[in-house]
Design a protein around this nucleic acid. Structure first.
Length: 483
RNA sequence: GCCCCUGUCAUCUAGUAAGGUCAAGGAUCCAUGAUUCUCAAUCAUGAAACGCAGAUUCAAAUUCUGCCAGGGGUACCA
């Protein structure tokens, strides 16, 4: 079997389904997996400036490799479509000589309206083999330009399905290719190139999305013509990601115009970005595999992935305090100079030990920060519990001036009081969290965050799981994982 | 327009090939309660579906017909 990514950008969560399913199939049946970069030319030169243009991005080759490595996918060989253009020339010539292909000069619009929709042959279909060969060579020799001429396969203008009437197999593109430059101006269409290559590299099973079903027909037509052994087709249905916008093309544009920092920006939903967010490859694989091979159109909710990931990281992510968008509370009449809070690093594994958070008072006053989302809910007179510390009674709340006053109330845990998180004013570090939508949350975290390893997920209690990626000048930068 | 495919809880899925074992099972989400010094996790309970209409049959989620609804293809993209 083969993986055939188009190297226009990093692999994303949507492309991953194709990879995971192929990989699993090969593993279960003891097959061989080939990585085949489907790096054809894409959009013609004349459309290259359009934001929708598809084209090969040089860095994508490595980004794809990186993504496959992260997913733990092993392959036996690597091929590049762009290395094999001469092969398609050779087979196109054979097809012309066998009178099953012809050079057509109709414009796309004219062909569709005058011939395809009416099931009628265009004049070029009747050309002799000699003329077709001559015109084909003119195409190869650069006598024609983009849009001037194409090679069509004689699948039949009387096909019931208009999608299958005399498909184009070779066309002209004057665009530059990152690997082979301007060496070729005639390029194959996807269906045709696979009909040839799947045979030549010995593919026995082709597992692809339902959107590529038409390609089956073209491949089968050509295998039939050459009397080649046929591969078996397997399909899976469409998958939709309603809460995500997934597009390698728009990700590329946003990276190029500087809106995104790179291919690990969470808005790309690339495998690179998922890794940075602390999503485990096993979680993604399991989530995708659970969808199976059904032909049903699937609405994929990212919560499904998050849930799988949480199963893995919950029991290994240490807990820390963090307050988002902090607001200061001044607590008066504190009857001690220092209180040492000792919450567990990971309550489900007490053997991992405890953290130490010190609350120090000056002149009987203790200053701490709480999250503004908690502050908004406070009412004067209310008693709340600072987790693992003390109970305080709120005296006044002035959100406009970010000023909250409170009194010390008591020490003992009382579950009637709501429990909130806090960070002492004199021992804190700045924490920045990059959210999936690209926004950044700011807040303070407990001092123990200075000692944590990078790229190992943690849970900021009552906030979310995050993956710390950088600690510099007492400032921690994290990627948001999920709730 | 023309071709093709798919319709089971909010979502994903099991069941459809051989009609009875399905008064439809599991997971996620949601709700309630327990537990917990986290709004997480854990445990318990609950809510929640065979697209519609006919037909065949002792018996239909499963077979047949019609309808309806979604998706895909119809690119000199992949």
């Amino acid at each position: 079997m083969r993986l055939a990514p188009y190297p226009s950008g990093a692999l994303h969560i949507g492309n991953a389904r194709m990879i995971v399913l192929n990989n699993e199939y090969v593993k279960r049946h003891g097959g061989e997996l080939i990585l085949f970069y489907d790096d054809t030319i894409g959009s013609p030169k004349s459309l290259r400036d359009s934001p929708k243009a598809k084209y090969v991005l040089p860095e994508a080759y490595d980004l794809i490799k990186e993504g496959l490595e992260w997913l733990g996918v092993k392959y036996s060989k690597v091929y590049y479509k762009s290395d094999r253009i001469d092969i398609f020339y050779e087979y196109t010539e054979k097809l012309i000589k066998d009178d099953v292909a012809y050079v057509c000069f109709c414009s796309a619009k004219k062909f569709k309206e005058k011939y395809k929709n009416k099931k009628e042959n265009c004049p070029h279909r009747e050309q002799s083999i000699e003329i077709n060969l001559k015109e084909w060579n003119k195409m190869l020799n650069g006598k024609y330009h983009e849009q001037d001429a194409v090679v069509r396969l004689k699948t039949g203008m009387d096909q019931k399905d208009p999608a299958l009437r005399d498909q184009i197999i070779m066309r002209i593109s004057e665009a530059e290719h990152p690997k082979v430059g301007n060496k070729y101006i005639v390029w194959p269409m996807l269906e045709f190139s696979w009909a040839i290559d799947d045979h030549l590299i010995g593919v026995t099973h082709i597992l692809r999305g339902a959107d590529l079903i038409k390609e089956d027909f073209i491949e089968d037509f050509i295998w039939e013509h050459f009397k080649w052994k046929k591969a078996e087709f397997l399909h899976y249905g469409r998958i939709n990601f309603p809460d995500i916008k997934l597009s390698k093309t728009s990700a590329r544009n946003n990276i190029q115009n500087g809106l995104y920092k790179g291919w690990d920006d969470p808005r790309t939903w690339s495998l690179q970005s998922l890794k940075k967010r602390g999503i485990r490859p096993e979680a993604l694989k399991e989530a995708l595999l659970d969808l199976g091979m059904s032909m049903t159109g699937i609405t994929f909710s990212v919560n499904w992935l998050y849930s799988k990931n949480k199963d893995i990281i919950d029991e290994i992510s240490d807990r820390y305090f963090f307050v988002e968008d902090p607001i200061l509370i001044e607590i008066d009449e504190v009857p001690f100079e220092e209180y040492i809070a000792e919450p567990f690093l990971l309550p489900s594994s007490p053997e991992k030990g405890k953290r130490i958070i010190k609350g120090k008072s000056k002149d009987k006053q203790l200053k701490i920060f709480i999250a503004s989302s908690d502050a908004k809910k406070l009412k004067a007179g209310e008693i709340i519990r600072l987790k693992d510390c003390v109970n305080i009674q709120i005296l006044s709340v002035d959100l406009k001036n970010k000023n909250i006053k409170a009194y010390y109330h008591s020490l003992e845990l009382n579950r009637d009081y709501s429990i909130i998180h806090w960070v002492p004013e004199d021992e804190k570090i700045n924490v920045q969290i990059l959210k999936p939508d690209g926004s950044i949350s700011n807040g303070y975290g407990e001092i123990n965050l200075l000692k944590i390893p990078m790229n190992k997920t943690i849970q900021l209690e009552r906030y979310a799981f995050v993956n710390p990626v950088k600690l510099e000048h007492r400032e921690l930068f994290c990627y948001y994982s999920h709730k």
